[in-house]
Each structure stands twice: as C-alpha cells, then as structure tokens.
Amino acid sequence: MIEIRHLSKELGGREVLHDINLKLEPGLCNLVIGQSGSGKTVLMKTMVGLYEADAGEVLFDGRSFKRDKNHEQLTEIRREIGMVFQGGALFDSLPVLENVMFPLDMFSTLSRRAKVSRAQECLARVDLKGADKLSTSELSGGMRKRVAIARAIAMQPRYLFCDEPNSGLDPRTSELIDALISEITREAGITTVINTHDMNSVLKIGDTVNFIYEGKLWWQGNGKNILDSDNAEIIHFMEASELTKRLLHNHRNKHEA
C-alpha cells in the first residue's frame, strides 16, 4: 500500500499540490484523474521521488520515501517501482529487447540467458512476442507503451506507476492498454497508480478514483459510483467528454424514472 500524508509541492512560486492525503491499495488500479495542469503528473513525480515534496511524505508499505532520509531505503524502494512514462521514455539507442532488459542488466545477478528469457517473457505478456530486435523508432505509439509496460514489470515491481498510459492512442489500443495494466495489477497484486483524464479508463478499470482539482484532492470514489457524484467540479470534468456526458444523462434519466 502507498500512503500519502499531507503532501504539498510548490513549483515556480505556484502551489501545485496542497495537503494531499491518500491511500492507494495493492491489487487495485488506483486512478488519479483531473484536467491537464491540475497537478496529477507533479503528484506522481513527487511520489516516485523525481520531485522533492515541500511538506508531507509518501510511505511505501510504511517505509518513508524522502531524499534526505536513509539512502539505502530510498534505493530499495525505487527498485520496487516500475514506471510507464507518458511518451514511453524508451532508450532510443537500444533495441526493444535491450530496453526491457535494462533494469535487469543494472540490478539483477541473473545470467545473460536468464535475463533474455525474462525480457522475452515480459514482451510476450504485452503481446509483443518477436519484437525483440526492432528499434524503438520502428514502433507505433501503442507498441511503445507496451514496451514501456514490459520494461516496467521486468523487475517484478511491487508498485506500478503509469502516467497517462493511453494518451495519444486510438480508443481500441487504449482499451487494450487499460486491460493489460488491469490484468497485470491483479495477477501480481501490484499497487498500481494511473494518471489519466480518459473517462473510458475511469469507468472500466477505476477500482479507486481520486479527482485532483487545482492541486487539491477534491473527490474520492470508484469507476462505478463516479456517475452518481454530485460534485460540481467532477461533473464539469466528466461533461467535457461527449461520451461521458451522454452516459451521465442516461444515468440521471434512469434514476429519475
């Protein structure tokens, strides 16, 4: 479980996160939603230690993740983290297999053959069997995301962070990526945190949904009860998508009937 306690963060003189308190459960897809610029990415980057929190702390199964604290503990926690970045963040200089093997090369004592086998296993898990030798420039957007997921799970992480995993993807590929993350989360009991503003993802895989608005945690619920919310800001957020707007309309009509 990941616990966020009174987390605040200021960037460029603006308070981007204000007193966030949050518990993210293992084996579930914990979604953080909000408009662009609401602070989702800053929250995720602060959670994984890319930004230092101005106040508050993040606990990974009770272990504090602060830069000024025990350096070994920080490294230990980081090695239990897998992260899928918005653009994939694949290493251009390495082919697909080497990208997936990168964390194994760095931290594992496995033989070369075992590392290759593990990397191929991860690629097969994301439906990219046989893509080993492709260069990253030959990959489509969806394939890049899948390779990034394969790299993130290569070290069998306890915590998986996905920053807008389906941004820039077509609806069908987005659905596949969502289903893949959800399956992996359940299979391995990982604590998965997903930043998104895609309402399809919210409704389909949102085991817990946390709505961030102007740097504050505005609403908590899940993909099932989000349509029942009477919070003005979250309704406004949902109505931005034509599909959700219609869903919301039908949902209300059903309730009134």
């Binding site: 980057k45 994984v48 230690g49 890319l50 920080l74 490294t75 230990e76 980081r78 090695r79 983290i81 992260m83 970045f85 918005q86 653009g87 963040a89 694949l90 290493f91 251009d92 990168f102 964390p103 760095m106 931290f107 962070f161």
Partner: peptide, 17 residues
C-alpha cells in the same frame, strides 16, 4: 537534452540509478 525532454533520464532515476 533529448533524453531529458523525452523523460529517459527520469526513467533511469526512477529505477534507482
């Protein structure tokens, strides 16, 4: 610079390196 703006450096940091 390209590694920085495409978050490749962040990816290395997150791995604990």
């Amino acid at each position: 610079g390209t590694m920085r703006v495409t978050e490749q450096i962040d990816a290395i940091e997150v791995m604990g390196m």
